[in-house]
Amino acid sequence: MTAPPTAAALRPLARWLNLLRHFVVRDIQQRYLGSLWGGLWALLQPLLLFGIYAVVFVQILKVRLPATAGGDFVPFLVASLWPWTAFAEALNRSSNAIPEHASLLAKVAMPRAVLVVAPVTASFALHGIGFAAVIAAAALLGREWHLAGIPAAVALFVLLYGFALGLSCALAALQVFVRDLQHVLAQVITLWFFLTPVFFTREMVPPALGRVLDLNPVTVYIEGIRGALVMGQQPGIATFGIALATTALAALVGAFVFRRLSRHFEDFL
């Protein structure tokens, strides 16, 4: 009662963060519940995927990278595959978060956004750690990264997280009303993967596809992170400006849609 007003104002935020922490931990626990190797899968899964791509592109297709991209395919793929995996998984796991927790929402009053923010945060936390581990392991094996690019790469990774948050909030809210979204999302994400320069560069594709890459909001984050870590290109003002604007726009749209719809989730679940 006599707590200073700032403390009273902080209490809902503290409760929100406390809840988020719990749901993130639970989300991670739930993924690996009953699996023998537990959290190790967070690292192994993208590593396996990475191995497949490396074999397909380097051994079978014999993809040659332009010299501007560093020439070596392995670090090139590492720097883009982990951020993409975090992003794609965040979208996949959060889009159905509200119907998944329908029974909880029907009985317990809680801030609903936590349910969406938690799986996105868990995906970026797990794959962020995996990303750092893979880069560190490669460095130990003698691979030279551009260490000066790390702050910029981290900043862009965080901005990508913000973009995923905004997009997920909008998708998760719409999903409550139009369940069809869930069925097409996996295909859309696969298509999105091929339209994002994860395993190729702009120079390797026809110019028509280049324009698609410009329209693809994820391109700027992936290219920026890879450029900073692999090619030693510090992302310029333009890159950060576009990334920041994209994240802000997604966050605004996500917040608007979620706010408008979340009051009525219960009526449609």
Partner: peptide, 12 residues
């Protein structure tokens, strides 16, 4: 009805 309700809610 679901679609119509969705549009109405988004429009406030």
């Amino acid at each position: 009805d679901r679609m119509r309700a969705l549009w109405r809610l988004l429009a406030g």
